[in-house]
Design a protein around this nucleic acid. Structure first.
Lengths: 213, 213
DNA sequence: CAAGAAAGCGAGTGATTACTTGCATGAAGC
DNA sequence: GCTTCATGCAAGTAATCACTCGCTTTCTTG
C-alpha cells in the first residue's frame, strides 16, 4: 500500500476540512468525517495534528496567507487609490467566491467562541487587513481622489463590515448569487461617500471612474 | 415547592437560551445548560418543548416579532424618508445592542445549516425586512430626497449587509464598542450615496440633515 | 374533597464526540 | 539485510449529547 509523507497528509487533511466546511459548515465536521474524506482511519488524523482545533488553525493560517498574497499588489501599490480600491474589492470577492469554505470557517462560532487562540488569529487577520485598507484610503486622500475630511479609520472598518455582511449573505443564501460580480455594486455605494466633492451639479464624475477589471 | 405554568416556563427557557447565546454562543448550549440556568431538571425541558430546535425556533419567533414591532413606525411612517431611515438605523442598532444573544443566534451555523426550517425562518425575516426597507427607499426617491436613479433593491440589500457586517464585528469583538452609537457613522457613509445630487459644491447639505435621535 | 391533568425529577439509552492504546507495516539509513 | 521510526489501523475510553421512561408532586376543577 502506498504511504504518504506527513507534509502531504497534513495538506490533504486541511483541504478536506475546507471542502467539508463549504458543504456542511463547521458543526458537522468531525475528525471521522475528515478521515473519511481523506481516505484514512480516524485515529490517523491524530498522527498529524495534536488536536482537532489544530487543523482549524492550520487551515486559517493557510488561507490567511494566500489572501494577503493576492491582495498585496493593490494594498501596497502606487497607482491611483480609487483604482486600487476598486480592484481590491473585485479581487477579494473573487478570491472568496472560489473558496466557499472560507466564510463558513471565518464566521463559525466554533472558531470564535470555543478556542481563544483561533479567535485571536481571526481578529489579527481582520485587524491587519483593516489597517492596510486604511493606508490605501489615506493615500487616496493625499492624492486628492478622496475627500479631505474622510475619516479613514472609520471608513476602513465600514468597508470591511460591508464586505463581511455581503459575504455572509452569500453564504446564508447557499452561494446562490455570483459574489464576484458584487464588486461593482459595492463600488457604486462607496464611491459617492469617498469622492472629493468637486463635481459640477449636473453630473458628478469621480476621477478614474471608468476603469474596468 | 412553587410550580410554574407551562407558559411561564417556556418564556423562562427561551430567555435562558438567549442569555446563554449571548455569553457563549449556540455551540455551548445544551439542554443541560438551559435547565441549569432555569433551575429545573434537564428532562423537564422536554415537557415544554418537543425538541431542542423548537426552543431555537421559539426564540427566533419572539425576537423577530419584537424587532418588527419596534421598527414598524419608521418603515411604515409617512414623514421624510431620509429622517425615517436615519432613525431606523439608530433604533435597530439600539435594539440589537440590548440583545447580545441575537446576533450570535442569527449568525449561528447551527441555525443556518442544521435545521432547514430554522434557516427558512431567518431568511424570511431578513427578506421581509429588506423588502420594507426598499419601500422606504422608494418613498425617498418619490419625495425627492434620494437620487432618482437609485437602485432601491440593490441599495436595500447593501444596507442590510452593512448592518449585518457591523453587528457581526461587534459580536466578534465581544461587544467591546457601543453598537448603538454606530448609526451616525453608518449614516455618514450612506448619505452621499443616497442623496439627490443637488447641493452646491461648497457644501453639500442633505435635506433634513440635522434631526437628532 | 376527589380526580385527572400537568409539571417535575432520577435514572437511564443509544448515539456521537475527540482522543488513546497497542500493534502492524512500510520506507529510509547504515 | 537489519534497525529505526514515522505512518497506518482496529479497538477502546470517557465524556457529552438529545431524548425517554417510570414515577411523584402539585395545581385545577367540578
Amino acid at each position: 500500500m502506498k504511504r504518504k509523507s506527513g507534509e502531504e497528509r497534513r495538506e490533504e487533511i486541511v483541504r478536506a476540512l475546507l471542502d467539508l466546511t463549504a458543504e456542511r459548515g463547521t458543526r458537522e465536521i468531525s475528525t471521522q468525517a475528515i478521515a473519511d474524506r481523506v481516505g484514512i482511519a480516524q485515529p490517523t488524523i491524530f498522527r498529524h495534528f495534536p488536536t482537532r482545533d489544530a487543523i482549524f488553525r492550520a487551515a486559517l493560517d493557510s488561507i490567511g496567507r494566500k489572501l494577503l498574497d493576492v491582495l498585496t499588489p493593490m494594498l501596497s501599490g502606487r497607482g491611483p487609490a480609487d483604482v486600487r480600491l476598486r480592484k481590491l474589492l473585485s479581487r477579494q470577492l473573487r478570491f472568496i467566491s472560489r473558496r466557499k469554505g472560507l466564510p463558513r470557517l471565518i464566521f463559525s462560532e466554533r472558531l470564535h467562541l470555543e478556542d481563544p487562540e483561533l479567535k485571536a488569529v481571526v481578529r489579527d487577520i481582520i485587524d491587519r487587513y483593516t489597517a492596510r485598507l486604511e493606508e490605501l484610503l489615506r493615500d487616496g486622500v493625499h492624492q486628492g481622489c478622496f475627500r479631505q475630511d474622510l475619516d479613514t479609520a472609520e471608513t476602513a472598518r465600514l468597508i470591511v463590515a460591508l464586505i463581511q455582511g455581503l459575504v455572509m449573505r452569500w453564504s446564508l443564501s447557499d452561494f446562490e448569487f455570483p459574489l464576484d460580480q458584487q464588486g461593482e455594486v459595492l463600488w457604486r455605494l462607496l464611491e459617492p461617500a469617498l469622492r472629493a466633492p468637486q463635481g459640477p451639479p449636473d453630473q458628478a464624475p469621480g476621477p478614474h471612474a471608468n476603469t474596468s477589471d
